[in-house]
């Protein structure tokens, strides 16, 4: 369970990006975080992961996020970055996938077992020993998801997981997200994808919650979406 209690954050003094934000995500929930550019979606995720420090309380499974428990909390939260090039920093997909589990002191055998299981589950066995800079954008996105899954996190955070993907690869990523059993928080402008993968939607506007409710209800509200520079998902238009 993740809980934000009156969280505020500003990159520059006097210009809040997140203002008095409070919400709660229960275990197993699939939540879409939507909003216009600059609404604070990525910032919320970075605050949750302790990459940024703001005011207020952030609780993960009842423990307040602080420097002392940062490592334990990060182990529970897997983060798929918007730009997979920034996520994949080892020479090959295999080495990238081994990076996390080995850092968390798993034996090499156990880490390899996890890597193989994830690759098989996602149908990515052919990528195992490929070089990161020689795979396509879609493959890289899937590999980035695989690196996070190899850590077996309880919650998965994804920042724009379908951006810059062609329709075929987008569909593969959506199907993969749907099959994940973990708690999910997905930030995106791709409202069709959010509709496909999330039960609940939080709409952010200027660092505050403008709407929070079932995905079907929020995403059908044309007036609400248009008031916050968004449009109805194509499927509902």
């Amino acid at each position: 369970m993740i809980e934000f209690q009156h969280v505020s954050f500003a990159y520059e003094k006097g210009r809040s990006v997140i203002e008095d934000l409070s919400f709660r995500i229960g275990d197993g929930e699939s939540v879409g975080l939507i909003g216009a550019n600059g609404a604070g979606k990525s910032t919320v995720m970075k605050l949750m992961l302790g990459l940024l420090a703001g005011e207020g309380k952030i609780l993960v499974d009842g423990s307040e996020l602080n420097r002392a428990n940062l490592s334990q909390i990060r182990r529970k939260l897997g983060f798929v970055l918007q730009n997979s090039d920034n996520q994949m920093f080892m020479p090959t997909v295999y080495e990238d996938m081994m990076f996390g589990p080995l850092n968390y002191m798993l034996s090499r055998e156990e880490a390899e077992r996890r890597v193989d299981a994830v690759l098989e589950r996602l149908g990515l066995q052919a990528l195992k020993h490929r070089h990161n800079h020689r795979i396509s954008g879609g493959e890289k996105r899937m590999a980035a998801i695989a690196t996070v899954l190899a850590m077996e996190p309880e919650t998965i955070l994804m920042d724009e997981p379908t951006s810059a993907l062609d329709p075929y690869n987008r569909r593969i990523v959506i199907n993969t997200i749907r099959e994940l059993g973990q708690t999910k928080l997905i930030s995106s402008h791709d409202l069709d994808m959010i509709l496909d993968t999330c039960d609940r939607v939080i709409l952010l506007s200027e660092g505050r919650i403008a709407a929070d409710g079932p995905a079907e209800r929020v995403l059908r509200d044309r007036a609400l979406l248009e008031a916050h520079h968004l449009e109805l998902p194509l499927r509902l238009a």
């Binding site: 990459l51 983060f79 970055l81 730009n83 090039d85 920034n86 990076f99 850092n103 968390y104």
Partner: peptide
């Protein structure tokens, strides 16, 4: 900016200067 993100990604996957991987 990119280097910062890259380092963040390392931290999120348990990097703590010990090179267990």
């Amino acid at each position: 900016d990119r280097a910062q993100e890259l380092y963040g990604s390392m931290l999120l996957r348990g990097y703590h200067e010990h090179f267990h991987y």
